[in-house]
Nucleic acid binder design. Structure first.
Length: 824
DNA sequence: TGGAATTGGCTTTTT
DNA sequence: GCCAATTCCA
């Protein structure tokens, strides 16, 4: 059937039309359909354009759209690609809809659900986000008799996440790690898996890990999925981690129709396991791969591009690449040094206003980026004050709110009665006398009986839990009834009686899939299989909309009453729970409009994998504020980037431990990504003083600013005289510009002369005979007063060991530590 | 028992 | 400075 439809479409969609306007290399990439292809696409080189055309070209050649799978990293990217493909296919729109454009995680969720039975999961499993995960880890810690003080849940979480990214099961993890901490992690990991399994939960990493293992160890399934996805396209390949790498390779193993696109210079997710080698060594994994380089930039001015190129050239571990453009030279980059973050924000706002009024740039065409979310606050204040429309993409601004998480938790329990984490979250919201102690009793009883906590609550009249307080008992029974009624209403049936919930052992969860078992259950892969399951539980009823379900849950749970009461008590506040939940209901309505056959678990999966950034998609008409990470893949005519300071733009983390070169290079790539988002106007700012967790600290201009060629920017210093004491003053004011160039000038490396006997610590440390000596007393903004024990030259930097009175011994890099000498 | 008030701890980026 | 966890009070 594929070919018939294909022909039809081919008739409507001319291959030449699809390729019209592509440059030679773009065309080369777009027309290479069979066999491995690597597109190394520099920033702004028209990559998205090329790959969407490529997909259209494939369809025009008669390849059935549903056999094409395009994988992106963010929902936003997926949405945009879907949109653009649809637009290209125009009249053949029906086909366009058939192209699978998904994020890795969404793909994972789909496959895990389709093959849930093979993975020991019910189709109604729920996805646990990072917060759920942390709760479970705390539980696991206490079960293992370890205290969260000595074993920070965060650290354990990221260790487990790292292990999962590398496809290490608890068993494998144990064998590979022998130090004390790792052994504890292994124990917690194992317990965590058990708890997760009992709750029928799957964490973000599982969505990749389970699929990777399934594909790796199960030939049958692999073949099915390879057949289904005969053409693979993976965007941002430089950001893939090991699990994603395995998924890609397993899917492409036989047909080798894999097109990877990306840019090693834009790899910014090393911290969550991305492995740059996946893209660097692509040709070794696929020896016949065709490689196309896209190096002409269509986005930025010559000037911006020159600055970006010079910056990234400082990375050693890098394939050299020359971006060029035929665009105009463009205006100089503006660099403004401000007094503090308030002035910085004012400056940004002022320039934004100017760009809008004088150059007629739309609000929606401007964006401001920062390294960490906390920097948005000052900006927001300033935008608010100036009355300029803006929107902030903050990670958990919306989906992280209590009231939203509460409503979602209710939904999760409706779908997945075993989800103890969500149940515990809302057990006492609104208050039902479900104290910690009562919950403990219920948890214990449930575990003993091998049922979920909700079931234990629902069995209370037949099997009471004696240790519960009277109110606790009735509260629990009440809660049980609420969910009974809700499930009845949603699914039209009472929940299946005491579904088997014996805890699967770790071995069960991770066992390599048994091939014999597979052969038995080797029905044809049916993409609709899940829908069938869903209809089974929801027979012959008019389909409920998510909006209706959500509203019902909101009311029945008692949350609505609680929020209404709150509002009456507090009056209208700017973050009103009622209004926020209404916003969520809007999201549900939106979902209903776009997925006429979507189920509650589809909706839940979508919102747990969604982030706030996704909700901004086409909210034009406002200046966008976001992190540098979130900015990847976007472009704006006008861009501002704040916080160019050591410790912030090369983030502290990268500067610690003697300045880890790998991490520093990732920070540089992040800066590179930021700069290359700009089309015409670029404004970079730093502040002399910045409030960091409640304390005002002096800062040093980012070392990255030094790496920008001086002919590309114009520097303006508004900080004026250096604030107060300690640093001998020396107002640099407008003469700072030359001072700047002396001190930071040019991209050349050598420690640049410097005379300034006094002042800033960067000066002093540049001279080999800096003013710090062993035995000297110093002050550190954070650690207080201490004595220098040791000094040691390490490359361009000086490593120093200081024993602080209150914080003990620390190893610091003199250049970044901002130590203040106090005399000896 | 629930809600308010206070303390302590900690911060990168996101699916 | 903000948030979560803890303590305190009605």
């Amino acid at each position: 059937m594929g070919s018939a439809v294909g022909k039809l479409v081919a008739g409507m969609l001319k291959s030449e039309d699809v390729l019209k306007g592509l440059t030679k290399p773009q065309r080369e990439a777009a027309t290479h359909i069979d066999g491995p292809l690597l597109v190394l696409a520099g920033a702004g080189s028209g990559k998205t354009r090329t790959i969407t055309r490529r997909v259209a070209f494939m369809v025009s050649c008669g390849i059935p759209a549903q056999n094409i799978l395009a994988i992106t990293f963010t929902n936003k990217a997926a949405g945009e690609m879907r949109e653009r493909i649809r637009a290209l296919l125009g009249g053949a729109g029906a086909q366009g809809r058939g192209v699978n454009v998904l994020t890795f995680h969404a793909l994972g969720a789909r496959i895990v659900r389709d093959y849930a039975d093979l993975l020991n999961l019910p189709a109604s499993f729920t996805i646990f986000d990072t917060a759920d995960q942390l709760k479970l880890i705390k539980q696991a810690l206490s079960d293992c008799g370890l205290s969260p003080e000595n074993y920070p849940p965060q650290a354990i979480r990221s260790a487990i996440s790292g292990a999962k990214n590398k496809l290490q099961t608890p068993g494998l993890y144990t064998t590979g790690n022998t130090d004390h901490f790792a052994r504890c992690v292994a124990r917690v990991y194992s317990r965590y898996e058990t708890l997760l399994g009992a709750a029928k939960g799957v964490d973000f990493d599982d969505l990749l890990l389970k699929v990777a293992i399934l594909l790796r160890d199960n030939k049958e399934i692999r073949t099915q999925l390879q057949d289904r996805f005969q053409y693979l396209l993976i965007d941002e390949y430089q950001d893939t981690n090991h699990a994603q790498f395995i998924i890609a390779h397993m899917l492409a193993m036989d047909h080798k129709n894999i097109c990877a696109t990306g840019d090693p210079d834009q790899s910014i997710y090393g911290w969550r396991g991305a492995n740059l080698n996946n893209i660097l060594e692509f040709e070794q994994f696929f020896p016949n791969a065709k490689v196309v380089y896209l190096e002409q930039n269509y986005r930025s001015t010559k000037n911006i591009l020159a600055a970006a190129s010079a910056l990234i050239a400082n990375n050693i571990k890098r394939k050299k690449k020359d971006l060029w453009t035929e665009n105009e030279q463009g205006p100089l980059i503006d660099i403004i040094t401000c007094r503090d973050e308030a002035q910085e924000a004012e400056q940004i706002v002022e320039r934004v206003q100017q760009a809008h009024d004088q150059q007629k740039i739309f609000w929606g065409d401007m964006a401001v980026f920062y390294r960490v979310n906390s920097l948005s606050r000052a900006l927001e204040d300033a935008f608010m004050k100036a009355g300029i429309p803006y929107q902030v993409a903050r990670g958990t601004e919306f989906y992280g709110r209590k009231e939203i998480r509460d409503v979602i938790a209710y939904m999760k329990v409706v779908v997945n009665v075993a989800d103890n984490v969500s149940l515990e979250r809302i057990a006492n919201v609104p208050p039902r006398a479900m104290t910690e102690a009562n919950l403990d009793f219920i948890r214990q009883a449930a575990e003993q009986r091998g049922v979920s906590m909700l079931q234990a609550m629902q069995q209370l009249d037949t099997t009471p839990i004696p240790s519960l307080t009277r109110q606790g008992g009735s509260g629990a029974a009440n809660l049980g009834r609420i969910f009974l009624a809700l499930r009845q209403w949603v699914y039209g049936t009472t929940p299946p009686p005491a579904e088997v919930t014996e805890e699967p052992s770790e071995a069960d969860l991770f066992q390599n899939i048994n091939v014999d078992e597979l052969m038995e259950s080797s029905e044809e892969y049916n993409p609709g299989v899940h829908d069938e399951i869903a209809t089974e539980t929801a027979p012959a009823k008019p389909r409920l909309t998510m909006k209706a379900i959500l509203e019902r849950i909101y009311t029945e749970s008692g949350l609505e009453a609680m929020h209404t009461k709150q509002r009456q008590r507090d009056g209208e506040t700017d973050d009103d729970p009622l209004a926020n939940v209404n916003e969520l209901i809007n999201v549900a309505a939106e979902f209903d409009a776009q997925n006429t056959d979507g189920t509650l678990d589809d909706f839940l999966a979508q919102i747990t994998l969604a982030s706030d950034v996704d909700r901004l998609q086409d909210a034009g008409g406002a200046v966008t504020l976001m992190t540098l990470h979130a900015a990847k893949g976007l472009e704006f005519p006008w861009v501002g980037i704040v916080g160019w300071e050591d410790g912030l733009l090369p983030h502290m983390r990268a500067l610690m431990n003697g300045g880890n070169e790998t991490e520093l290079e990732e920070e540089r790539r992040l800066a590179f990504v930021g700069i290359t988002r700009a089309m015409k106007h670029l404004l970079l700012t730093n502040a002399r003083c910045r409030m960091i967790r409640g304390e005002t600290q002096r800062t040093i201009a980012s070392q990255f600013l030094r790496e920008l060629p001086k002919e590309t920017f114009n520097h303006l210093d508004l900080a004026g005289e250096e604030p107060l004491g300690s640093r001998g003053g020396s107002g640099r004011s407008e003469s700072f510009r030359s001072g700047w160039q002396q001190r930071f000038g040019g991209a050349s490396s050598g420690p640049s002369s410097s005379s300034g006997s006094s002042s800033s610590s960067s000066d002093s440390s540049e001279n080999s005979g800096h003013r710090f000596r062993r035995g000297m007393m110093v002050r550190h903004a954070q650690f207080g007063i201490g004595r220098i024990e040791h000094l040691e030259k390490a490359g361009n930097q000086t490593r120093t060991v200081v024993t602080f009175n209150t914080h003990g011994r620390k190893t610091l890099i003199l250049e970044y530590a901002h130590l203040e000498p106090l005399g000896s």
